[in-house]
Design a protein around this nucleic acid. Sequence first.
DNA 1: TCGCATAATGGAAACGCTTACAATGGTTTC
DNA 2: GAAACCATTGTAAGCGTTTCCATTATGCGA
Lengths: 323, 323
Amino acid sequence: MTTLTDIAREAHVSKMTVSRVINHPEQVSADVRELVEKVIDSLGYTPNRAALALTQSRHYVIQFLILEDIETVEPYYAKLLIYLAEELQRLGYSLEIGHNRQVEVNHVDGLIVVGGRQTDIPFLQTLGKPVVTYGSLGPAIPFVDVDNSLGTYMATTYLLEQGIENIYYVGVKLPEYFALARLVGYLGAINKFQTPRHVHQILNNEKQAFQLIRHLDIKPNSAFVAATDRIAMGLLNGLALNKIKVPETVSVIGFDGIFLNQITSQRLTTVQQPLKEIAQALIDSLLVQLEGQPAENRLLRPHLVFGGTTIDHQPNLVPLVET
Amino acid sequence: MTTLTDIAREAHVSKMTVSRVINHPEQVSADVRELVEKVIDSLGYTPNRAALALTQSRHYVIQFLILEDIETVEPYYAKLLIYLAEELQRLGYSLEIGHNRQVEVNHVDGLIVVGGRQTDIPFLQTLGKPVVTYGSLGPAIPFVDVDNSLGTYMATTYLLEQGIENIYYVGVKLPEYFALARLVGYLGAINKFQTPRHVHQILNNEKQAFQLIRHLDIKPNSAFVAATDRIAMGLLNGLALNKIKVPETVSVIGFDGIFLNQITSQRLTTVQQPLKEIAQALIDSLLVQLEGQPAENRLLRPHLVFGGTTIDHQPNLVPLVET
DNA sequence: TCGCATAATGGAAACGCTTACAATGGTTTC
DNA sequence: GAAACCATTGTAAGCGTTTCCATTATGCGA
């Protein structure tokens, strides 16, 4: 590894001058600066992170902390992680993965937390580091989230504008903000259009959604707005079992976009999370906090992506991912 | 942050003694050791990673390097990452995510590489760090992999033992080891049972598999062994379109297990990657290399997981994931 | 009783970098 | 033309830890 000292020796200057060329180039005379820069290029210098961390007590490490159980972990995190890693790399940071609450965070500058519950708030606060959550845990902790209400509002409005009268909402029975927000979006659209409301709340799994269909007396000219793609998939299975045709008889819209890059027999129409924008906003929030300023919460606009579970009177907006 | 010096001051010893209590406790007398340990506990000391890295030039960081394009990234990496993070944390290491070939690895002790091609070998070698790949790139670089041949062998044998005569193999047309190995496993079973062979090679996407079905004259009493779950899903879609019933008329077995935690209308019977064991083996390989010893390659045994695309004469071995 | 080996502890230097301050020399100011 | 200034460069110390060597104390054999 080439160090500042190596460069200094080669350029016949002190290592302070080299350091200045890197950090405060305006303080160095042009000719010396050019000389040092040439030597840096030829020797291929990269600063030693440990030494930097030691003097600046900045580690240039962000941790992505997954608080979910391994079996329930969202597969689209893989994609989010790559967006985060790319952007952080551009900024000179590296991205670290953490799981569970026993993580050691002394060497970390800030945390992006996913899968947390409201009960995790005290834990996150005691870390004493900038934290941003993906999905709100409440006002105590800065967050970035998809605009959940807008998402279900868009989905419901879309269906209503197609002339569908009965929109069933199948929500998640959890005391979390996103569950409430998604319900609110549905109710907002229903109120605006003055149509009957049908709300059902279940746990977020396909089985429960599947079983719900059995107990439902589905009226003609209907559609489902599901709070999650998992629920939507369960509904689809239930509808298939009851020989109810999708989308001819009943439309279904999900939320999240987790099955987007799969061409299953039936692609789900869904409210897609804007993962790239979310990654960017999460990073922005941490950087702002690292500057010592308060971070603003961000609600990002989701996109309605048309699959095969709605009758689309507009063109398929998103091409199939695979070629 | 409490430092060695803080502990030393509080315990009225030099910081060297404290350092020894942590690293070479046998060199410290029992009473001093106990005293220092008590102070460490009460002040809650954790060593400063940067300082450690500076003296030892060991950073206790492992990078998970994803060389795939973001759109083709495997969703099951999320699960693999968590297994890796958990185990590495136990060992005092942290796990970092890298994407693309511009990564800076000076601060990293070793790399776990996924999604690489054979053309990446020179790049990986120039890093000058211990590397292990998930999936073999050839003998030049230590690897851990599922036993691909065994997987397709198990799948094919299982179908043959059910009395199915015509087993179609739909492989991946790529010059990569895994593609060849999976084909070999199929051929091995075919040879052993002296049944007709039907090999087709396509690109690894659902569309191609879907289209393949159209051009195929499928004989009665048949089954498909697909080289990947993606191909299997495409085959299923194609079969559905042609009104061929699965599994009643034709069975299908995939490979990888990427759709395992989804209850789609039809769960795929597949050869599952043993992710937890793979994570462990990847880490073992790096640790061995960090000791300066040569790492042995590992081929791990996959599991046949029964879904709804085979007629199972044995009980469903894996329960549905969601409860 | 003395010398010596051994155990237990401490001090100093080093890892690579930055911050804070000092030194140098040229230029401005009156 | 001397004082003050500024631009440019260098020196020293310190971040938290370890390795290496020095010091002190203890116990043992002769």
